[in-house]
Design a binder for these strands. Structure first.
Length: 256
RNA sequence: CGCGCAGCUUAGCGG
């Protein structure tokens, strides 16, 4: 409906208050909410770090007899993840299975993200294994790997982070269609996650080669500001002033 | 023949 599009637009613009006002207006005018408007509202709670409110909305939706679909569950799991509550995220996932709603790659990515944010690297890897084993097995995408690399880096598991990156490279090499390739090819997020992982594991020496490998063929990743910041941070931690100065020059010339 | 914004996932630094 037109209200649904308006709510989505509010979310994209970060206008959470405006969206909530719109939602109330809908109710007052007797316009029924549906699974799309609820999902948008839950996603707004997600970004606003209000996982409890997200739970309330979800329950209200169910109480109104609206069946949650995979996207509705995903937005709720994501809200729990951002709220650093992996146990709640897992509970929602179990409820989803009881309701016989099939998880998709975003479901697993959000669960992995919940573990990552809670410092549960091992658990993140278990979920990764689980998603591939499931009867309706789900193919990991770039986002799955990026999140796992970040989790490994935070856990001080640099070897694991590098192994995940290698898996990613293989998946990209084995891609049979452009669509498949674009779903797994490393990107700027991969680059910053790897550089940060090297820094966190005190292997500053590995940051420049990783950066270079990502920006070279076949990956051809274009570093963005976040990548440069991650690199500068790693070089600073490694006390490599000369390399940092050189990188800074490049950063300035690249932005032209 | 494919694609086409009503909804869901990932990275750095500073504050």
């Amino acid at each position: 409906w037109t209200y649904g599009a308006l709510l989505a637009a509010c979310r994209r613009c970060g206008a959470a208050q405006r969206a909530l006002a719109l939602a109330r207006e809908m109710s007052q005018q007797g316009v029924a909410h549906n699974v799309y408007t609820y999902t948008t509202l839950i996603a707004i709670c997600d970004r606003a770090r209000q996982w409890q409110t997200a739970m309330v909305l979800f329950r209200r939706m169910e109480a109104e007899g609206i069946r949650a679909d995979v996207a509705a569950y995903n937005s709720l799991i994501s809200a729990c993840a951002r709220g650093r509550n992996w146990e709640q995220a897992w509970a929602v996932f179990q409820g989803m299975q009881r309701a016989r709603v099939l998880p998709n790659v975003r479901t697993y990515n959000s669960l992995i993200s919940a573990c990552e944010r809670c410092g549960q690297y091992e658990r993140a890897m278990e979920i990764y294994a689980k998603m591939r084993r499931a009867q309706a097995s789900v193919t990991p995408d770039r986002c799955t790997f990026n999140t796992l690399i970040s989790a490994a880096g935070r856990a001080g598991q640099l070897a694991a982070a590098l192994a995940l990156f290698r898996e990613m490279e293989f998946a990209a090499k084995d891609a049979r269609t452009p669509k498949e390739l674009s779903s797994v090819a490393p990107d700027a997020v991969t680059m910053s996650a790897l550089v940060s992982a090297a820094e966190r594991c005190s292997r500053w020496d590995l940051a420049p080669p990783l950066f270079q490998r990502l920006e070279s063929p076949p990956h051809n990743v274009r570093p963005n500001t976040i990548c440069y910041n991650a690199m500068l941070s790693a070089l600073a931690a490694g006390a490599d002033a000369a390399a940092a100065a050189a990188l800074f020059e490049r950063m300035l010339s690249d932005s032209e």
